[in-house]
């Protein structure tokens, strides 16, 4: 079945978010966010610093508890789940790619151990198989197999980020949260990483929520786009539609402030 057929065949969203609100005392983190994410869909969230993108992502991934609203994953109420179940989901069906690979990797553990950790967490107990999978995944994210025993601290920034992606995808998750995955990388490395991510998303049929301030990243990866300002979603729609014909004044400002070479 192709991806489009899968998307048509499922009649319910993978992630259903309604009225999600999180405040920090009197200040608003994000307010009244509502959206559906369908299997195989990539949703981009853009906005300036402090617009509530990261708060929203943390709430979705279960790192923060929202004040109001509901999150349903595959028909299950995420906020009503016990912690055991939520953490189990967090290391099998979900993945979280941090902006800084140092937050998502264990820097003192070899690349192979990093990729294998999620496998061992769900019960893999055969060294040879774990290592084989680690090497296969490193190959998939274009890291040479002979680097499998090197620590991530010996890797370049781009390699660390690709390793983090491999580490997250090894358990074949269905939903991936990405927080500024290309932040801090130079443009040529960014381009390769984006290319790689686009291929993986297409091949594996992943659903992705990607937070970024870089409009080029969402143009390339995201099917749909949400624009946030001061904790509220001001505009959402198909990526090309929003970027080519922005309706809200803030979106217009955002699009027009992209630097042209």
């Amino acid at each position: 079945m192709t991806l489009m057929e899968t998307m048509v065949a499922t009649d319910r969203p993978l992630l259903k978010v309604e009225g999600l609100t999180k405040g920090y005392g009197p200040r608003i983190g994000c307010a009244g966010v509502t959206f559906d994410l369908w299997p195989g869909e990539v949703l981009g969230i853009v906005g300036e610093s402090g617009s509530g993108k990261s708060t929203l992502l943390s709430c979705l991934a279960g790192h923060l508890r929202p004040d109001l609203g509901s999150i349903h994953y595959d028909g299950r109420d995420v906020l009503a789940m016990g912690e055991t179940e939520r953490r189990c989901l967090g290391r099998t069906d979900w993945a979280y790619v941090h902006q800084n690979p140092r937050d998502g990797l264990r820097m003192g553990v070899s690349a192979g151990g990093n990729v294998g950790e999620r496998l061992m967490a769900i019960g893999a107990r055969h060294y040879g198989e774990i290592r084989g999978k680690a090497v296969a995944w490193m190959d998939r994210v274009e890291i040479a197999a002979d680097r499998v025993d090197d620590r991530p601290s010996a890797f370049s920034g781009g390699m660390q980020q690709r390793l983090q992606i491999a580490r997250n995808l090894v358990t074949s998750p269905r939903l991936v949260f990405m927080d500024e995955p290309t932040g801090g990388l130079d443009v040529s490395v960014q381009a390769r990483l984006l290319d790689l991510m686009r291929g993986l998303v297409r091949d594996l049929g992943l659903s992705v929520v990607i937070v970024t301030h870089d409009l080029a990243v969402v143009r390339l990866l995201a099917h749909r786009l949400m624009v946030m300002k001061s904790g509220h979603v001001v505009e959402q729609g198909l990526t090309d539609q929003v970027l080519d014909d922005p309706q809200h004044s803030y979106t217009q400002l955002l699009v027009s402030s992209v630097l042209q070479v």
């Binding site: 912690e83 953490r87 264990r106 950790e117 061992m120 499998v148 025993d149």
Partner: peptide, 18 residues
Amino acid sequence: ELEEYGLMHVKLYEDIAR
């Protein structure tokens, strides 16, 4: 509490790898 002991095997994995 949650019986998350995968990390213990990461240590043993590192031993064998090294």
